[in-house]
Design a protein around this nucleic acid. Sequence first.
DNA 1: GTCTATAGCAAGATAGAC
DNA 2: GTCTATCTTGCTATAGAC
Lengths: 197, 197
Amino acid sequence: MPKISDARRDARRNQILEAAQRAFAAKGYQHTSMAEVIAEAELSTGAVYGYFDGKRDLFAAVAKQVLGRRNADLVAAAADGSPPAPAEVLEIVLDGTRSEGLDLRLLVQLWGEATVDPEMRDVVNAGVKVLGGAFRAALRRWFEVHPEHAPDGADVAAENLVPVLMGMGQGFIFQSAMLDGFDSRAYLDGARRILPH
Amino acid sequence: MPKISDARRDARRNQILEAAQRAFAAKGYQHTSMAEVIAEAELSTGAVYGYFDGKRDLFAAVAKQVLGRRNADLVAAAADGSPPAPAEVLEIVLDGTRSEGLDLRLLVQLWGEATVDPEMRDVVNAGVKVLGGAFRAALRRWFEVHPEHAPDGADVAAENLVPVLMGMGQGFIFQSAMLDGFDSRAYLDGARRILPH
DNA sequence: GTCTATAGCAAGATAGAC
DNA sequence: GTCTATCTTGCTATAGAC
């Protein structure tokens, strides 16, 4: 039986998660000390360790939350109205990050960490799998309405397009986080030009 | 005046770089200690610090070498014969990494580090700039031969395609390094299908 | 130029009071 | 549940012999 209400516990947990997200985005996961996360959350060591096992656990939780929100965007947008075109699918997901003010460097840091940490790798794989499913479903619906772009059927067309469309999204994230003078409109224009429409 | 010949010095330097590349790829830049790099190179602390200022300097040098080789591949392939189609441009660069046996996780780690380390960020920006120039030149030549895909001229068509084509390459690198059961052929097939040809 | 040994520091996590 | 104080570990980089 918890000493404080579940609602209050959840609020604290969220307070810590949001502070961690800010801190990690600012200085990077690797270069952020627990002391900095704790200061950002305006709590004390003991309090934070009461909610999370440590720095890795905290980063994994932040990542899961972020990936979950991206997926929710796409599912919501695909559910109502006419199915979005491939380029629009990409824009929905990327716009979600922008409107949320998500620092895309955080995702690139997650990728880097996932290359050597199996726990993080699992988080990334799970995120890509879920998001990929949402991509596939949205594309399939669009190809059903546009059979002229799907000679072998909507299923096959969607299946073929998913990896490379996600790749274009990952490329956007990378370039946006990394390149001086990245032009997101030009990138999306280029994508629109080659994607079926 | 060097106490040992330049050739010998270069060989030592390369020995260290290759050891560092192996060590970083295996455990990740962040999680590799200098002691491990030194053991891999079969040298001693003092010897390694005689050639590099420290771990960061070493990683930057490894990254520059790798990016330089990728660029050389593309320049060489574009120079002779008929200009490669967009999908082929992508394949040339990605095949180069495979034939070299480069562990793509190394690049993803570089990206992660570059989000927080200005020196690494400069390395990545310089690499993308050079490689982007090679992409642009190759695409321009192809569009000149295929004006039906370039209504506004070869220059504009190439300019528009470069960011998203590089993005597809970055997506490939990410997925290849990260996803369980990544199918590189399926990815490239999907790319070929949407790219002009 | 290369070696061994170690100084010196940063930071993740814990112990115990309240 | 939350706080302060601190313990412990691991690692980068240097100093000095050969």
